[in-house]
């Protein structure tokens, strides 16, 4: 009984955090976009700098008409937002926010996360297929090709970290970085991982699945209201977990030079990575689908293999 209660409480805590985080990130993104573009962004709703804008948007989205496209593939269309959101939430379980601030430290934590994030693709593809819309279908096709080809470099680039740490448990990986971060011998791995995260979260320059100027809204063209809201929710959740994972694997997790609590350091590093992702989004144009594939298969995968080789050689020589 206690186990069940604990599990429910944990799930609630994670959901609350994911929701809050998405609200903050959406507000942050709009603010950053605004200031990059010499605007101000949200301003009128709530406290300083319109910080309650996301909440107001959430209320609006909840109260909107539940529009369902004709000719949809009923259950698939209905399930798609849930399927794309669930993995974004599930990943939070295995992320070490602080020394003992982790919900479940699995000894296969890294494998768990990489396998769970791959599920996100399923939701995207279901949305594209179930909507009975050509833009959605094209978006889903692109997303399928894109997520699949960027999952591989992402996983390959983490292998160097696993080699160096000798463990798949994320807490152990962070603990091993107390002396020096894995970033410095494995800068290639970090770059590959970060680019792969950008591609997996469908952000510019890899936002082909949404591609506003080409596909209107991509796979979520036909969704509105709270169903639509689940997609950005999942997107920002995945962005955060991706950056958190990068922090864990390459940037020393909760380790920091100053006397701040570990989780503060972790959040600072993660949000800096998130900020860079947003900065990139509002600067670069979008790549084309074949260029995206080229970058993934011909460039990032060899690069991550070089990274593995280098790390292996380094370990063999040092030990």
């Amino acid at each position: 009984m206690n186990d069940v209660l604990a599990a429910v409480l944990e799930a609630l805590a994670v959901l609350t955090y994911v929701a809050l985080n998405a609200f903050v990130l959406i507000w942050l993104e709009r603010k950053i976009a605004g200031h990059i573009q010499r605007r101000i962004g949200p301003l009128r709703v709530g406290g300083p700098g319109g910080s309650l804008q996301s909440l107001a948007d959430g209320i609006k989205l909840f109260s909107k008409e539940d529009f369902r496209p004709g000719g949809r593939d009923g259950i698939i269309w209905w399930l798609a937002p849930l399927v794309s959101m669930t993995p974004a939430v599930m990943v939070f379980i295995a992320i070490p926010f602080g020394q003992h601030l982790i919900i479940h430290d699995m000894n296969i934590g890294l494998i768990y996360i990489t396998s769970i994030t791959s599920f996100g693709l399923l939701g995207v593809f279901m949305a594209g297929w179930g909507s009975n819309n050509k833009y959605s279908l094209l978006g889903a096709m692109r997303a399928g090709a894109q997520l699949f080809s960027y999952e591989i470099p992402a996983i390959l680039s983490t292998i160097g970290v696993v080699l160096a740490a000798g463990s798949l448990s994320l807490e152990t990986i962070v603990a091993k970085q107390s002396a020096h971060w894995f970033l410095f011998p494995q800068i290639l791995g970090f770059i590959v991982f970060y680019v792969a995260i950008l591609a997996e979260t469908n952000r510019t320059p890899f936002d082909l699945a949404e591609a506003e100027s080409e596909l209107v809204g991509g796979y979520f063209t036909e969704y509105s209201g709270i169903r639509w809201a689940m997609f950005p929710f999942a997107e920002y959740g995945t962005l955060f977990t991706g950056c958190a994972l990068a922090t864990t694997l390459f940037l020393g997790g909760w380790h920091g030079p100053l006397f701040l609590p570990g989780w503060v350091w972790f959040l600072i590093k993660t949000y800096i990575l998130v900020f860079i992702a947003m900065w990139i989004r509002w600067t670069l144009p979008r790549v084309r689908i074949d260029q995206l594939m080229d970058l993934g298969w011909k460039f990032l995968i060899p690069l991550s293999l070089i990274n593995i080789l280098g790390t292996g050689a380094y370990i063999a020589l040092v030990r």
């Binding site: 976009a33 990059i36 573009q37 010499r38 605007r39 510019t204 320059p205 936002d207 591609a211 506003e212 100027s213 509002w282 600067t283 670069l284 144009p285 979008r286």
Partner: peptide, 10 residues
């Protein structure tokens, strides 16, 4: 058209 929004506003 190429997916970069910021040049539009500049």
């Amino acid at each position: 058209d190429l997916g970069a929004f910021t040049p539009f506003l500049y």
